[in-house]
Each structure stands twice: as C-alpha cells, then as structure tokens.
C-alpha cells in the first residue's frame, strides 16, 4: 500500500509551458485504495538557477551555487482524512519572480548552468509514515525583447583551403583542394523553429565521409570564468561522398530543454554557435563556426 503513489498532477496545458505572469492551473488527482489519514497536502513551486564552477586546481570539486528564482508554497488540503477512492483538488499557482530577484529565466538544462522550475506535491503523514511525493517539472518561457527579432540576417560562408586557420603549419601539406559554399537562412534563430540553410560542396578532391551540423553552447558563469563550450547536438546532413555542386539543405531543430534564448547577463552568459562540419575520409574535419542568437518568437 505504501509503495503505490496515489498522486497525479494534471496541468491544464499538456505542454506544461508557461510564461512569466501566467498562472499554472491544474488539478491534483489522488487515488488512494484505502482511507488515507494525512497531515496536510502541500504544493510547492521551486524555481532555481544552479551554477557549477569546476575546480581551478586538480584537487577538490567544483563549487555549486543555487539561486532561487521563484518560490511559492501552498497548502492545498488541511490535515484530515481522505476516504478511499479518487479525489481531485484544483490548484492555481502564479509564476512570478521573487521580490528580490531579477526577472525569471527560461528553463534550461545545461552543463554548468541549470535553470529548472519544479512543482512538488507532498502528502505529509507525520513522522513515522512515509510522505507521498510527486514532482513535475514545468517549463517557463520568456518572450524575447529584442527589437531586431523580426530581422533575418542570412549568413553566407565559403570555405576554401586558404581561409582555414591552423594550429600548426605542418597540417598545410595534407589539405586537399576543396571549395564548399553554404548559407544559413538567418543567424537569428527562433526557439520553436529550426535552424535552416543550405550547403553545397563545389569541389573536393578527397572523398567526404560526412557533413554534419552541430549546435554548440558556450556557458560562462561570472566574468572571470572562462567560456565552456560543449556540444548540444549533432545532426548528420550528408552521409558518404556527396555529389558535387548539389545544394543540400541544412536543417536542425533546436532542442527544447538543452537550448534556450541567448542569455547575456552579468552573472551568467549562455550563447550558442552553429558549426558546419565536413569530415573527409581521412578523418580530417573542415569546419565553419557561426555564432547565432537564439530568441523566442511569439
């Protein structure tokens, strides 16, 4: 009896996505097989920003800091007894920032930076009995405020051997002749949409193994911290030695959780890059790195 979790949280929006200022409406569905005596049913919304800074030296773990963005607690049901069967309790929770805090941030799961909003429902049953707990994450989106949001800035690129930057001069000998042209439809990318463009391999003397498009995030916590670039996702555009002079579309849908609108604030910066990679058969990679701005469009 104790193992079955009777709590089910239902939201009015199946996508569980809300904006600042909106109210989460939903209901708790309790389904207890027997009579339940409880000490109260509480509902808490916890929104926080968690940052992680790795250790500067080899010894020691990094520091992890949690800042609360929003906290809201409500006692839905006073202590009492729940008869057997199904019960439904409606709730409403507003989404607003804490008073001291600045504006809310979008939900984002990153490597160093985590922004999450979690709704927790608990049925307290005293000290001895186990507390029933159910948590669900909700997603907060913020409208982007830039004025230039509606502009599209296409980005053209043309990769040739002379435009490459090398770490070592030695590699110059192994570079084959190639000419790769492409363009991104816009460097301003919308969160709900996909990053689109085209790529065209005009010539390449070596066979190509793969053409990929990569989404890179760079996170920075604080001013002193160096940027940490990691890959979010990698989508293969072409498999094998592609025909030359053929326009192949680039298309990558931005992930919901692992990307967010570009954040450039005092204490955290989350920026994104698109890398277009052409991997040759000898595993050399020709890449073009394009910085993009992600915004949320409504």
């Amino acid at each position: 009896m104790a193992s079955a979790n009777p709590i089910e949280i239902i939201f009015d929006r199946p996508s569980r996505t809300y904006h600042e200022g909106e109210t989460i409406q939903g209901s708790l569905r309790l389904n207890n097989p027997t009579d339940l005596k409880h000490d109260g049913v509480s509902l808490t919304l916890n929104g926080f920003l968690r940052t992680f800074v790795p250790a500067k030296s080899a010894i020691g773990n990094g520091a992890s800091k949690i800042q609360s963005l929003t906290t809201f607690e409500e006692m839905l049901l006073n202590p009492g007894k729940l008869p057997q069967g199904k019960h439904e309790v409606k709730f409403q929770i507003p989404i607003r920032a804490n008073a001291d805090r600045r504006a809310l941030l979008e939900t984002y799961h990153g490597v160093r930076i985590d922004i999450q909003y979690i709704l927790v429902c608990e049925i307290h049953r005293g000290i001895l009995a186990q507390t029933f707990r159910e948590e669900k994450e909700i997603f907060v989106e913020l409208k982007s405020e830039w004025s230039k949001v509606s502009e599209t800035k296409p980005y053209q690129f043309h990769i040739t051997p002379d435009k490459l930057e090398y770490a070592k001069r030695k590699l110059m000998k192994h570079v084959p002749e190639f000419s790769i042209r492409g363009c991104l439809d816009s460097t301003q990318c919308s969160m709900g949409r996909a990053v689109q463009g085209t790529i065209c391999v005009d010539t390449c003397t070596r066979p190509i193994k793969s053409v990929e498009i990569q989404l890179i995030r760079s996170e920075q916590v604080g001013v002193d911290d160096p940027k940490d670039c990691t890959e979010v996702q990698n989508i293969q555009i072409a498999d094998g030695d592609v025909p030359r002079s053929l326009k192949i579309p680039l298309h990558m849908v931005l992930p919901q959780l692992f990307a967010c609108a570009t954040i450039k604030s005092a204490d955290i910066r989350v920026e994104f890059n698109i890398n277009v990679l052409v991997i040759l058969d000898d595993d050399h990679i020709v890449a073009e790195s394009i910085p993009i701005d992600i915004y949320r469009h409504h």
């Binding site: 199946p14 996909a194 989508i235 498999d239 849908v253 992930p255």
Partner: peptide, 24 residues
C-alpha cells in the same frame, strides 16, 4: 486536442534529434 498536438510535437522533436541521416 492539445494533448494530441503536444504528443505529436514531442515525437517530432525526438525524431528530428536523431543524429544519423538515414534513420532520421
């Protein structure tokens, strides 16, 4: 219904994030 749309979008997102070209 919104649930259906949500589910559809979720599936779509999952599929679009497959790395390899052919299965995607």
């Amino acid at each position: 219904t919104p649930q259906a749309q949500e589910m559809c979008k979720n599936w779509l997102l999952k599929i679009m994030s497959i790395r390899e070209l052919v299965p995607r």
